[in-house]
Design a protein around this nucleic acid. Structure first.
Lengths: 194, 194
DNA sequence: CTTGCAACATACCGATCGGTTGGTTATTAT
DNA sequence: ATAATAACCAACCGATCGGTATGTTGCAAG
């Protein structure tokens, strides 16, 4: 037909961008409709409600994006250096929209985790997967690491600090504070080695 | 008259609670009016707009609360231990509303910093003051600390991690992840000593 | 060629939002 | 006592929200 799948993907992409920019609640369906140049009937043909659209964005856009982004620096011989290089590169490559809008996962966590159970569980699962990626990578090279480390605790610590760093860049509207926190985080990560 | 100041304070207190629970945008003026048992005219007699009410809540409720909370653990002989004790106590004393609703400052930062300049500057100022409190306290005992530390970088790192930790507790709906991150943060903080 | 259904479009709905208007009540100064 | 004004109330406003009911279009199978 008129390529229903293309329409659906277009909605998801635009919705992902709007949610990233304005949060879920403040995202207006009518704005999505305008940007996609479709009618409300079209949107509700593909998604049964706003929140179902939100779930689809999370699962089909954000989740694969995140897993892909984090796999790359951790799937190397030295995940410690891989992670530090990755984080440092982030401070340099960070686009304006990332400085201002923050991390989609963290944003949704702040906004929706305490309001909607469906979002909360999806976010929690994503955070656990992220933590697993880190702990698995560190476990692989555990011979090079200190023996007093508490596995998953370290992983969550890194994730938490990174989230807090993006938060700081939002209020300062520049990368400086973000860079400082990441620099300190890299010091911490490298100190995990023996 | 009918104690205008009392009315004003009542509005501020209720608004602070609503904003903490639901965020600024999702906070409904009509809910505040119902809880305060006043009319819309009364509210608009004291505050010219919703956002001005928000600013007032930030300045008159959140700011003094924060400064007070952070001064206590840092104004002691050993701010390193004071801070660690404070953070550890947080993990134990944390009320349900704090687990679920997070930190008011961090919440507003996530929600409003990239949307409203007035909020952004107030939040940034608060974060800078917080960082200053920490760096001043650490500076006082710099003889006991490592010599390779980058002053404000450490302060922002601590603030960022704490914010990230509250974020994790939101999605997990319990204290465990929060406690893990704080435990690791305390390890980091104590390692600042010589 | 037609029938059927997926893929859309249009118009409308009730609810709620922040904000305004015009008036009333209470307190204070003269 | 009265005038002035601060403090407050009730009713209403336009705009926007997510969602729905009904109609139209296009493609594919029979």
């Amino acid at each position: 037909m008129r390529d229903a799948e293309q329409t659906r993907q277009n909605i998801l992409t635009v919705a992902a961008d709007e949610i990233h920019q304005h949060g879920f609640k403040a995202t207006s369906l009518s704005v999505i409709l305008n940007r996609c140049e479709i009618s409300k009937g079209a949107l509700y043909h593909h998604f049964s409600s706003k929140i179902e659209l939100g779930y689809a964005v999370f699962e089909e856009i954000y989740t694969p994006m995140f897993l892909n982004v984090w796999h790359t620096p951790l799937d190397v011989d030295d995940p410690i250096e891989g992670l530090c290089d990755f984080l440092t590169a982030m401070t340099e490559d960070m686009s304006c929209s990332e400085v201002v809008c923050g991390c989609p996962l963290n944003n949704l966590c702040e906004e929706m985790a305490n309001v909607d159970e469906g979002f909360r569980l999806r976010i929690l699962s994503m955070q656990e997967q992220l933590n697993q990626l880190i702990t698995d990578a560190f476990e692989r090279v555990s011979d090079d690491l200190r023996t007093d480390l508490a596995g998953s605790q370290v992983g969550y610590f890194i994730v938490a600090t990174l989230n807090g760093a993006t938060s700081l860049s939002k209020s300062s509207r520049n990368k400086v504070l973000f860079q400082q926190v990441i620099a300190e985080l890299c010091l911490y990560i490298r100190a995990l080695k023996k």
